[in-house]
Write a protein that binds this DNA or RNA. Sequence first.
DNA 1: TTATATACTTCGTGATACGATGTATCTCGC
DNA 2: GCGAGATACATCGTATCACGAAGTATATAA
Lengths: 106, 106
Amino acid sequence: METQTKRGLLDVCVLAAIRKADSYGYQIIKDLSEIIELSESTLYTILKRLEAAGMLTTRTAEHDGRLRKYYHITERGIGRIAEFENEWKEMMTIYHFVTKEGGSNE
Amino acid sequence: METQTKRGLLDVCVLAAIRKADSYGYQIIKDLSEIIELSESTLYTILKRLEAAGMLTTRTAEHDGRLRKYYHITERGIGRIAEFENEWKEMMTIYHFVTKEGGSNE
DNA sequence: TTATATACTTCGTGATACGATGTATCTCGC
DNA sequence: GCGAGATACATCGTATCACGAAGTATATAA
């Protein structure tokens, strides 16, 4: 998928993955890999951004000697997903506009 | 709509508007205003980009003493719209992933 | 011991939407 | 004739963001 197209989608994908269950970076990438590709640098940037925006909270836990930073979704994060569902309606309108065979050019 | 969400959509909206019939900047903004907001500076940037990418060609015509730059869509531009239709399928998958009520968190 | 998987971080770059600002002409009301 | 508003296009600077590259560190398997 085009990098630009991803821009409106990555945030909500990450939020949705964490809404299912608290999770951490490495796991999120694996969970999302089936529906959207994103690199580690991208993911960790997004996590930091969403936390700063109050959509996620963190807790650090040890697992097999390695540290894991678990993310938990907040009410605000859930609100962002709801907002996306409204945006989706606008996107549907755009999709219809774009695909509707348009007129007499060519 | 969020600025970030628009990023994957604006290009194809502009292409689709021009596919209907050759058009020029000011007219395109008016035609698109019903489905998506975009400023003049954004539009003219996009038009220049799409022309540079070989998706549009231009011809300048005079109308009431003012110059108008008419844009015409190329095969490549039409191809970009077709590509978007494929991307849309991926976006649908993402939409389902995001909206599917997810599990036991909270 | 070497490679691979796990786990997170930082830095620099390129793409791009947008507000602000500028230029220029036409039309309409007064 | 003059100011206001619509028409028409262009440029500049800024903020946001996805991503590759590179680094740090530990556990496990070959």
